[in-house]
C-alpha cells in the first residue's frame, strides 16, 4: 500500500520533471553522470546489500549444477535426517544435512534458488505487461476508459488472492508453469495502479503534446514517449512484485497446491520438514531463512531503486 502511494507521488520529481522544467523555460535538469549514479548507489547501504545478495542468488541459480555438492534428487534412505555440520552429529559430506528421504539439503537449497527466481521474474514480467498496458491506457485516455479500467482494478483488489490462487492451482493440478502463469495473471494490480497515475501526470506534458501535434501515431506516443518515462517507477514495482510472487509461490507450495514434489521449492521444503520441526528445527529453519533473505534482498533493492529515482531521497 505505502509502496504504491510513494512510488506514485515521487515520479513528478523524477525524469518527467526534466521535460516539464524545460517547457517552462528553466534550465534543463542535468542527466546524472554514471559516476554519480554509482556513487549514490553504493552510498545507499540498503541498495548495496540488496544488489549484492540478489546478484549472488542469480549466480547460484545460474551455476547450480557446478555449486551443488550432490544430486538434489538422489535419495539415500540409510542417510536420512542427517543434521547440519555445526551440529554434533553433522558431517562435511552433507553441510546442511539431509532431508527425510536422505537428499542433500544444501543441493536442494541451491536448486531451489532457480525455482524462486524463475517464478519471481517470469510472474512479475507477465503481470507487468498486463498491468502496465491497463494502467497506461487508463491514465492516457481518462474518461470512460479510465472508469472501466479502474473498475477492473478495484475488482481485482477485492479478490482474495491467496484463496483464489490456491483453488485454481489445485484445479489445474499445480506445476511450475501453471503456478507462474497463475501468479502472473493475479498480481498485476500494483503495476496498473502505478502506471495509471504516472501516465496521468505525463499525459499533458509538453513533449507528449508536441508528439501529438506532429501527428505521431497513438502506439508511438504510448511506447516511445510515455513508456520510457514511467520505466523508473515500473522497475521499482517489478522488484516488489517479484518478492510478492516468490512469497506466494512458497505459500502455495507449503500448502501443497503449488510446485509439486520432488522439485526443491523452498516452500515445499518447509512443508516436508514440518513433521520433524519439533526435534530437528533446522529442517524448517534453513529453507525459511533462504526465502527470507532472498525476499529481503529484493525488497531492499526495490526500496533503494525508488530512492535513486527520487532526488530528494527517503523522507
Amino acid at each position: 500500500m505505502t509502496v504504491s502511494t510513494s512510488t506514485t507521488s515521487r515520479p513528478s520529481r523524477a525524469p518527467a520533471a526534466g521535460g516539464r522544467a524545460r517547457a517552462l523555460g528553466e534550465l534543463p535538469l542535468p542527466r546524472p553522470a554514471w559516476s554519480r549514479v554509482t556513487r549514490k548507489m553504493f552510498g545507499h547501504r540498503g541498495l548495496a546489500i540488496g544488489l549484492v545478495c540478489v546478484g549472488l542468488a542469480v549466480l547460484v541459480a545460474l551455476f547450480a549444477p557446478l555449486l551443488a555438492p550432490h544430486d538434489p534428487y538422489f535419495q539415500d534412505i540409510s542417510n536420512r535426517m542427517v543434521p547440519p555440520v555445526w551440529h554434533d552429529k553433522g558431517s562435511w559430506t552433507h553441510v546442511l544435512g539431509t532431508d527425510k528421504l536422505g537428499r542433500d539439503y544444501l543441493s536442494r537449497l541451491i536448486y531451489g534458488t532457480r525455482i524462486s527466481l524463475t517464478i519471481g521474474l517470469v510472474a512479475a514480467l507477465i503481470s507487468g505487461v498486463i498491468g502496465t498496458t491497463l494502467g497506461v491506457l487508463a491514465g492516457y485516455f481518462g474518461g470512460r476508459v479510465d472508469a472501466f479500467i479502474s473498475y477492473i482494478i478495484t475488482t481485482r483488489l477485492a479478490m482474495p488472492v491467496v484463496l483464489v490462487a490456491l483453488a485454481l492451482a489445485s484445479l489445474t493440478g499445480g506445476s511450475l508453469t501453471t503456478v507462474i502463469v497463475l501468479l502472473g495473471l493475479l498480481l498485476w494490480d500494483r503495476f496498473a495502479v502505478v502506471s495509471r497515475s504516472v501516465t496521468q501526470q505525463l499525459r499533458d506534458a509538453e513533449y507528449v503534446y508536441a508528439a501529438r501535434t506532429l501527428g505521431c501515431s497513438l502506439p508511438y506516443i504510448l511506447v516511445r514517449e510515455i513508456l520510457p518515462n514511467i520505466a523508473g517507477a515500473l522497475i521499482v514495482v517489478i522488484t516488489l512484485e517479484m518478492a510478492h510472487a516468490i512469497l506466494l509461490e512458497a505459500t502455495l507450495s507449503f500448502l501443497g497446491m503449488g510446485v509439486q514434489p520432488p522439485l526443491p521449492s523452498w516452500g515445499l521444503m518447509v512443508a516436508e520438514g514440518k513433521a520433524y520441526m519439533f526435534f530437528q528445527p533446522w529442517v524448517i529453519a534453513i529453507p525459511g531463512v533462504a526465502l527470507f533473505v532472498l525476499v529481503l534482498a529484493i525488497n531492499l533493492l526495490g526500496d533503494g531503486l525508488r530512492d535513486l529515482n527520487a532526488p530528494g531521497g527517503r523522507n
Binding site: 518478492a243 512469497l247 505459500t251 507449503f254 519439533f278 527470507f292
Partner: peptide
C-alpha cells in the same frame, strides 16, 4: 523491512517451535 520479507507460514511455524515447543 523484516516484516515485509518474512513468509507468514514460516513465521508461524517458528513461533510454534519457540513459544509452544
Amino acid at each position: 523491512v523484516v516484516g515485509q520479507a518474512m513468509p507468514s507460514f514460516w513465521f508461524g511455524l517458528t513461533l510454534i517451535v519457540v513459544f509452544a515447543v
